[in-house]
Nucleic acid binder design. Structure first.
Lengths: 162, 162
DNA sequence: TTGCAATTACTGCAATGTCAATTACTTCTG
DNA sequence: CAGAAGTAATTGACATTGCAGTAATTGCAA
């Protein structure tokens, strides 16, 4: 049963909130400057590149992304317009659509990845020792453990793209 | 010096990213449903309510919020339009503006606060033990320690409004 | 099997937030 | 003290995203 919210937990939440906000802003700025790529595009591309056959249904993408369904639709439109992904109708469900990463998309991810990891280190990892990082990993995992959509979609997102 | 990004740190970052996304979405949904208040409004109001005299300059608010300067301006417009805050010209710098919480604003915060803390417990705290919470607090504090704007603006945001 | 509810993806519209430019004022420099 | 440079806040133009509604398809229930 959920007990009362204590001060430490509240501080922890505010810490997550602000860390997210500050770090994300910097990661996005770096990526835009270095590669002219919005971080939302990167997120979708890296997800796709790590899925079997480089493809995912729209609703699966919704589950693992930070967007709503319609947000994913628009994002897909933009990525498709510049040839980084393409849509394919699903054979098994005619309502469905697969979003598939193209060769250009894979090339883009490969190009961006090293700089992105460097940014994460620079704006985030740099300040943490091994114990901090492990604690963060473990604690956030407990929270996401209870997220249905996230659990269903769990495919490891944290290894470099192939 | 920044060394290489290791796997654990990368997982930690993704954990923060997704925890933020999932939890925030739920907190916002709760607040909108229970009190018809966007969480961005709540953030501004709670900041103001905890500042001396319930007032903050626009750029101070920018420092502690998740928005850019112009974003804060627009948010202030909306809050002012419904009477939750008001603007006052700064006597010491005639370019400056204070955003001041009104009685209605304080009433709103007082009304929302208990449900909001309950939401944080429900979507976040519930899943953490005391050690997890403390680790999260400490690790995120290290990151924010290095954020100039955040350090300058450091006023404890984590106690209930008066 | 037929009809109803649920699901998939998309679209129009409105809200929100950013960027770059602008106005007003202050501070620094010589 | 004059002028240049910097700072505070706002605004217009624009991009992005969510919400609510829609069309097509599937699956379930009687």
């Amino acid at each position: 049963m959920p007990n009362e919210l204590d001060q430490t937990t509240l501080d922890a939440w505010r810490g997550v909130l602000f860390s997210y906000a500050r770090v994300t802003r910097r990661l996005e700025a770096d990526m835009l400057e270095q590669h002219d790529l919005p971080i939302t595009w990167f997120d979708v591309l890296s997800r796709l590149s790590q899925s079997p056959d480089g493809r995912l249904r729209m609703h699966e993408l919704e589950g693992v992304s930070l967007f709503t369904r319609s947000g994913v639709t628009r994002l897909a439109d933009r990525l498709e317009a510049v040839g980084l992904v393409r849509r394919e109708r699903s054979p098994e469900d005619r309502r469905g659509v697969y979003l598939v990463i193209t060769a250009a998309g894979r090339a883009k991810i490969a190009e961006v990845w090293p700089d992105h990891t460097a940014s994460i280190q620079k704006h985030f990892g740099q300040y943490l020792d091994a114990g901090d990082a492990e604690s963060l990993r473990a604690a956030t995992a407990k929270i996401l453990e209870h997220d249905e959509a996230f659990r269903r979609a769990r495919g490891d997102d944290s290894s470099p793209p192939r």
